[in-house]
Design a protein around this nucleic acid. Structure first.
Length: 396
DNA sequence: AAGTGGACTTGGGTTCATTCTG
DNA sequence: CAGAATGAACCCAAGTCCACTT
């Protein structure tokens, strides 16, 4: 009796994978859409049945796979029958070391795609909890780590010095680590460890400050990172050292990891990359541009609408009109600044990914503040695990 | 130890649903 | 009542990281 919410249809098929602890039920519709329900043996469903629905996501288009293994049985209205026409499956799999339900190789990049559980599911919740516990353990040693890398700024080994400076950047500026990427295949973006000479400028003096480092590079999604930071003298001297005898395309931290000595890729790849970068760059500006246009045209519309009235009508009406215009203008201005500020900061995401909300929960419980005031429905669902387990004495 | 690819998170754009407004 | 505004849900590319080979 479950309705498929993507298809608005009751036509569903149920498939139960046998001999496994973690079972999956697929709801199917017209061979195209299917949804996944994960069941856990240990738990009881509210109607007294043995199983409990954990999760579902969809719709998804199944890849072209081999015929369905006969280990899978399909049921509809309690009646058993074979695999639905046109559906071809690769394998039945039980693997409690992974959290995905279904995976396949995508046919453009050849990368693997997954169907995974919703953030509000138990599996994701537990992982999330682990993540924050790791952060909590890290807190105990962070002072030691900081002392260590400051010490390492003076190391005899260049490798160690570079690591220490990179770590300092990551710690101080929260830069992304910066991994190896497929050159040519992907846009030319960098993180801390993959910074190149061309991304950094050193200013012994700048804006009345000493030892300023100017960072300017394309980060994730080719979003520009631009920052001027005063750093410790020792860091500055180290950076000068790292830059000696290097060209723009050379790695700043060349000794950092044992990177594969990749060749200078053909101009073909350069062109390819240039196009990729161009596309990404060109896509972003029109959006903000369009928004500002919308705001401006909205403002114009407001002014134009009131113009004729003002010239014809009496003083009182004029005053009122002026007042209303300025009110609307203010509203538009507030919207504009709001958008402008929100453009820079993705508040929701960081709330969902970085902040251990047990701190907030404990605070709420301690002072009798309702959690709803601070976290919206989605956030509360995602953090159900934390809300349940946290009492007012919790300390990070 | 190096290299590779699988697994998972991050980040935020797009779409959908609901409420607001003229 | 239609279109605009708003916020939640959905979705997926682009990252990170690490385990497994070789």
């Amino acid at each position: 009796d479950k309705r498929c919410s993507s298809c608005i249809s009751h036509s569903v098929l149920i498939c139960i994978l046998e001999n496994i602890k973690l079972s999956v039920i697929l709801y199917m519709y017209q061979d195209k859409h299917f949804r996944f329900f994960t069941l856990w043996e240990e738990e009881k469903y509210t109607d007294g049945s043995k199983w409990r629905f954990l999760e579902h996501k969809g719709p998804v288009f199944p890849p072209p796979y081999e015929p369905l293994p006969d280990r899978i049985r399909f049921y509809y209205d309690g009646e058993e029958f074979g695999s639905p026409p046109g559906t071809r499956w690769k394998e039945v799999r039980h693997d409690n070391k992974v959290t995905w339900l279904v995976s396949w190789t995508e046919n453009i990049q050849g990368s693997i795609k997954y169907i995974m559980l919703n953030p509000s599911s138990r599996i994701k919740g537990e992982k999330d909890w682990q993540k924050y516990e790791t952060a909590r353990r890290l807190k105990k040693s962070v002072a030691r780590i900081r002392a260590q890398y400051r010490e390492d700024w003076r190391s005899k080994e260049m490798r160690i010095r570079q690591r220490a400076v990179a770590l300092y950047f990551i710690d101080k500026l929260a830069l992304r680590a910066g991994n190896e990427k497929d050159e040519g295949e992907t846009a030319d973006t960098v993180g801390c460890c993959s910074l190149r000479v061309e991304h950094i400028r050193l200013h012994p003096q700048m804006d009345g400050q000493d030892y300023v480092v100017e960072l300017d590079f394309p980060g994730k999604d080719s979003i520009r990172y631009y920052n001027k930071v005063p750093v410790q003298k020792r860091v500055f001297k180290n950076l000068q050292l790292f830059l000696e005898n290097k060209q723009g395309k050379d790695d700043l931290f060349d000794r950092l990891n044992v990177r594969p000595s990749y060749y200078k890729i053909l101009s073909y790849n350069r062109a390819n990359r240039a196009v990729a970068v161009l596309c990404i760059h060109q896509r972003a500006p029109p959006k903000t541009f369009e928004k500002s246009i919308n705001l401006n045209s909205g403002l114009l519309a407001v002014i134009n609408k009131h113009k004729p009235c003002v010239s014809v009508l009496g003083v009182e009406t004029k005053k009122k009109a002026v007042q209303r215009i300025s009110e609307q203008l203010m509203k538009l201005e507030v919207q504009a600044t709001d958008r402008e500020e929100n453009k820079q900061i993705a508040l929701g995401t960081s709330k969902l990914n970085y902040l251990d909300l047990r701190i907030s929960v404990a605070w709420c419980k301690k002072w009798g503040v309702p959690i709803e005031k601070i976290y919206n429905k989605t956030q509360r669902e995602k953090f159900a695990w934390a809300i349940d387990m946290t009492d007012e004495d919790f300390e990070f």
